[in-house]
Amino acid sequence: MNITLKVWRQKGPNQVGAMETHKMTEVSGDMSFLEMMDVLNGNLIREGKEPFAFDHDCREGICGSCSMFINGEAHGPGRNVTTCQLHMRSFKDGETIHVEPWRSAAFPVIKDLSVDRSSFDRIIQAGGYVSVNTSGETIDANAIPIPKHDADQAFDAATCIGCGACVATCKNSSAMLFVSAKVSQLSLLPQGKPESKQRVIRMVDQMDLEGFGNCTNTGACEVECPKGISITNIARMNRAFLSSNLTSK
């Protein structure tokens, strides 16, 4: 198939960017979106031009590196997939495809389609862990049975890949889905409970400090999240946050 690409070109942080148009022929439906970008980049290099920079690593939807805003949707059309798992068969012959980076004040552009998401790391550093040392001298793993239902729910929340699609999708650039996923995972498990109050306060404070916006419950994040993280996590976190704030005052 033939497609026309309009891709964001930005030389570096704080520089003015613009869309650039490229025509592609002989695109196979079995190519992943990133493989199509590889072909484009190969062509550009042979023509003596600079390729487009973009982040990627695992190419199987688990590392959370890839991050393109395609035709107005984070990770493009299709539900529960990342850009690296998107295949060209999802597009029509002759289609024009717009490719942009995540856009959020808390995710500044590094170059072209690549952005800086270290704000997510700092939120985790603020409290997204259980304070246990790694000596291995803890209790036996089966000493505390955990109801399967709780374990499964914690697992579902823990599958967040930290890609940032939720932020890129949200008109307020809110990081609530990401933060609530981690808070939920840990608060659903007995190991995470002792610190749950201070954890939620610290992580939310850090989130605000990084410049993420407020959540106005539009639910757009849940729709675009490649891992199907549910907004019930946000509700759970809000409850925890309120009660923590009340009790700590």
Partner: peptide, 12 residues
């Protein structure tokens, strides 16, 4: 043991 203590949600 270590991973469970950290909150790794293994299958149960």
């Amino acid at each position: 043991d270590q991973c469970v203590a950290q909150g790794v949600p293994f299958a149960r």
